[in-house]
Computed example of a mutant assay.
Amino acid sequence: MKKMLSLVFALVLLAQAAPATAEIKFSGDAQVRPRGEFTDIDGLDDKDDMKYYYRLRLRAAADLGDGFFAKALISSETPGWLVSVGDSNSETYDLGVSQLYFGRMMENSHYMMGRLPLNSFNNPVFDISMYPFQATEIPTFIYNNDRIYGFNYGTKVGPGELNATLCVLNNDMTENDVFEDGYAVHVAYKTNIGNVTFEPQLLAALTDADIAGGAFISGSSYAKSAYNDVTPFTVGANVTIPANKTTFTVSGFYTWADGEGTRLSLEEDCCDTQIVSTSHDVDYSAYLLRIKAQNGPITAWLDYNAADDDTDGAGDDYTNMFIWAQYNWKVHESSMGSFTIAPTVRYLATDYNDAEASRLRTELWASVSF
């Protein structure tokens, strides 16, 4: 609580200390979310559970004039999207600077730098790149807090807009070499063909990077198999098609990596679980297909993700299907904010080398924005 009050106090001081010509706007949102979770894994007893999550986010946006701007998002840095209630309400809610970036918007171009938002909730290119074996259920949004450190430049090219971002994926401290850090470039071109929006994309690792991989639902670890020092390459596109009152979005992405790398695996015994690192000749490929529909307050989509991991000839096969369905009911809306209730259903089915598992999550999102 002391840390939270200190951050809020710092924002107020920043606003008071700003030049008279600068305009700083503050906003935010808060959410509580009870969740029922029902898991079925081959060979194990079914597991049902109730969890109670909550979240607070604070935003600051400064207009510096002549197109220059600065933005920040303060939120919990705990992976997992929201913080859940612990034993005897003993959990702590730590706030931190989740996003911080600045730049300039011009008539036909822009640039920005810092810890940038990704919009990965609507764009799965980072999901399939960083979680190729389980790219469904929006893992970048949930586990990576939907942000990345980078340098972005966008400009109008022909009838559309070209965006290029140099991304810093990780900082490798094992070698005395700046090029041992993980860098990638993300390029997207967004244009309209009639009333259809077409956005082809490329995400390519420029140096060795670390990825989470993904896992068969185990309950003990989301990333049961991960790779370090690999260079994935991803191509694909999002296509948005309006049809009367419904907007459809179709996404398709393909990723692959080969070459020397390090595999991180969990080894479990009777008393302990440890991460084991071994060198391998990495060779995997994966794809993700999504069809999404939005009609007024209703949003639903279906993801299908398949991966083939032939590292050292292992021949591991992963398939994942994910369904998201949500109804947004706006209880109250005014110039000062809004109150929304959103029943949500999330269903994940996975298959790892013919072993099957499924997980159903039923949630009630209650959110206020201010």
Rank of each mutant, 00 (worst) to 15 (best):
E356T: 15
T207P: 05
V178R: 07
K25G: 12
S221K: 12
I142C: 07
P139K: 03
G194S: 10
A212Y: 07
S76V: 07
R147G: 09
I323H: 02
N123S: 11
P117A: 02
L348P: 00
L360N: 08
R35V: 10
R35Y: 02
N295Y: 08
T174H: 11
R147A: 07
V235D: 05
Y284N: 10
D181Q: 09
M113P: 06
V83S: 05
M321W: 13
R290Y: 01
L348I: 07
G252N: 09
V32Q: 05
W81G: 06
G36Y: 15
F339Q: 06
D42G: 14
A212W: 06
T21P: 06
N170S: 11
Q201V: 08
M321A: 15
D210G: 06
I291A: 15
V276R: 13
Y53A: 08
D45V: 04
P200K: 04
V85R: 10
A325V: 10
A342D: 07
R359D: 14
W365L: 13
L7V: 13
S334L: 10
I193V: 15
S218D: 14
P19L: 00
N170D: 15
V235N: 01
T246A: 12
E199F: 02
A22E: 14
T39I: 12
T255E: 08
D49V: 02
G259I: 02
G158T: 13
H110P: 00
G43F: 11
F151E: 04
A257D: 09
